[in-house]
Write a protein that binds this DNA or RNA. Structure first.
Length: 427
RNA sequence: GGAGAGAUGCCUGAGUGGCCGAAAGGAACAGUUUGCUAAACUGUCGUACUCGCAAGGGUACCGAGGGUUCGAAUCCCUCUCUCUCCGCCA
């Protein structure tokens, strides 16, 4: 959520930013916000004045009572009636104005960073860099959804049909070496993050409504999350939600900054309406595993931190020997809450497609404002910047390892994972 | 699931109708003392909104929401959450 004071003082910048996102009706909406804000402040001032008068009267009555002047006290009481009626009305008006403002503010996305390219769709994203050589596969190479059936003991190493039996489509069962390589990846990612200075956390994988609001999933994206009505809990779509919300309503002592957390969790996404032919196999799932890095930074350091996170993610891909590219998302393709997002995509050799495996974003104060996440810096209370990134999401990494490393004799496990999973080949 | 207790500032904890935005202690921060550390002493020490160039002022907030009252942390109602005991159970 943008800060009102920011919109007030930087109307033009806000409008240009929203334009970059192709946010419709920006001008009208901002005008409405400013008008409502003015009205809210006027109302607040009136209310405060009225309440100040009431307080003065009450005090006066107290003194009169004590001095035993009953008649004067009663007379003063009579004078409060009007004030009461008046303040009641103003209170209602204030609450309404605040609610209306809030309702609009939550629909306004974050302002893109100046480096965010213009553009509407994924095709307009800027390719920042490409790294590694796309492998040439042997004749007869297969996509991962075929490969998984080729290996494994008494069944595929990743069994989609078994998952259907247990839960439904998009909930695969990992078996044998399929399960072990998953676990190896998780441990590898966690160890790498810790070596890079992140502290591991294991958060709950369900969250309440406040948490969903804090990071910006609610209101709006409720359709994407699994919900448990009995307990009013959402299954997390990413560890970003619980980990960032650890710092909701927190005033962080300046000397504890920056905060760098890493967590492994399963993630759950309903993916309503996004099913299609190109999401076969591991490309899109309802449940998947992900290691997420989250940082809380001083405003002046957040973009350095973002680059740093991007480097960290890239180093993982390099160690896994996967060809990848880095995209800077354009205004139209960026997430609602982000100011700048890098997507990392790995090359999936048999599908001959880039697969998104990480998304690293700086939210600046957008989430912090909702979270009330602040620090007292230079004597002033200030909102902090939040950032997060996948480091990494498992299924597509696994898909490209399977596809890129396939040989006629089996699938070669990246060297860096061998100590973690204890075998060199899936065969 | 059953029974009970409670929710106050960074923490502990006092406060049962006006003198309470809230005692006291601790923590933290700044300073004095000191060869260093420690101790002692002094001072500072909530947040939000709002008015003001500023100094400074106003308002709200003692789990949340409502009510009683001229006046509520304090009385009443509803809700939420936490803790303890019992039951069940990983």
């Amino acid at each position: 959520m943008l800060q009102l004071s920011y919109i007030r003082d930087n109307k033009d910048a806000v409008l240009t930013g929203l334009q970059k996102r192709h946010f419709t009706n920006a001008e009208a909406i901002i005008e409405q916000v400013l008008a409502l804000d003015q009205h809210r402040r006027d109302t607040q001032r009136d209310l405060d004045d009225t309440l100040a008068q009431s307080n003065a009267k009450a005090k006066e009555i107290g003194v009169l009572m004590k001095s035993g002047d009953k008649a004067a006290a009663e007379a003063a009481k009579a004078e409060t009636t009007n004030l009461k009626v008046h303040s009641k009305a103003l209170e209602d008006a204030l609450r309404l104005a605040e609610q209306q403002l809030q309702d609009i503010l939550v629909t306004i996305p974050n302002i893109p960073h100046s480096s965010v390219p213009a553009g509407r769709t994924a095709d307009d994203n800027e390719v920042v860099l490409e790294h590694g050589k796309k492998p040439t596969l042997y004749d007869g190479a297969q996509p991962h959804w075929e490969l998984i059936k080729k290996y494994g003991v008494n069944g595929p190493i990743i069994d989609f049909e078994l998952g259907v039996k247990i839960a439904g489509a998009g909930f695969p069962v990992y078996r044998g070496k399929g399960a072990r390589i998953q676990r190896a990846l998780i441990n590898f990612f966690l160890d790498e993050a810790m070596a890079a200075g992140y502290m591991e956390v294991q958060p709950p994988i369900v969250v309440n409504e406040e948490s969903g609001f804090g990071t910006g999933q609610l209101p709006d994206k409720e359709g994407q999350m699994y919900y448990v009505p009995e307990d009013k809990l959402y299954l997390i779509p990413t560890a970003e939600v619980p980990i960032t919300n650890l710092y909701r309503d927190v005033i962080v002592p300046e000397n504890q900054l920056p905060i760098c957390n890493v967590g492994y969790t399963p993630c759950f996404r309903r993916e309503a309406g996004s099913w299609g032919a190109h999401v076969r196999g591991l490309n899109r799932l309802h449940q998947f595993d992900k290691v997420e890095i989250v940082r809380i930074e001083k405003p002046e350091n957040s973009y350095t931190a973002l680059e740093n996170m991007s480097q960290h993610v890239q180093s993982l891909l390099q160690k896994l020997e996967l060809p990848y590219r880095v995209l800077r998302l354009c205004g139209g393709d960026m997430g609602f809450t982000s100011a700048l997002t890098y997507d990392m995509e790995v090359w999936s050799a048999a599908q001959e497609r880039w697969l998104e495996v990480s998304s690293v974003s700086n939210f600046e104060t957008y989430q912090a404002n909702r979270l009330k996440l602040r620090s007292k810096m230079e004597g002033k209370m200030q909102l902090l910047h939040t950032l997060n990134g996948s480091a990494l999401a498992l299924p597509r990494i696994l898909a490209s390892i399977l596809e890129n490393n396939q040989t006629p004799n089996g699938i070669r496990v990246p060297a860096v994972l061998v100590p973690y999973c204890g075998f060199e080949m899936i065969d």
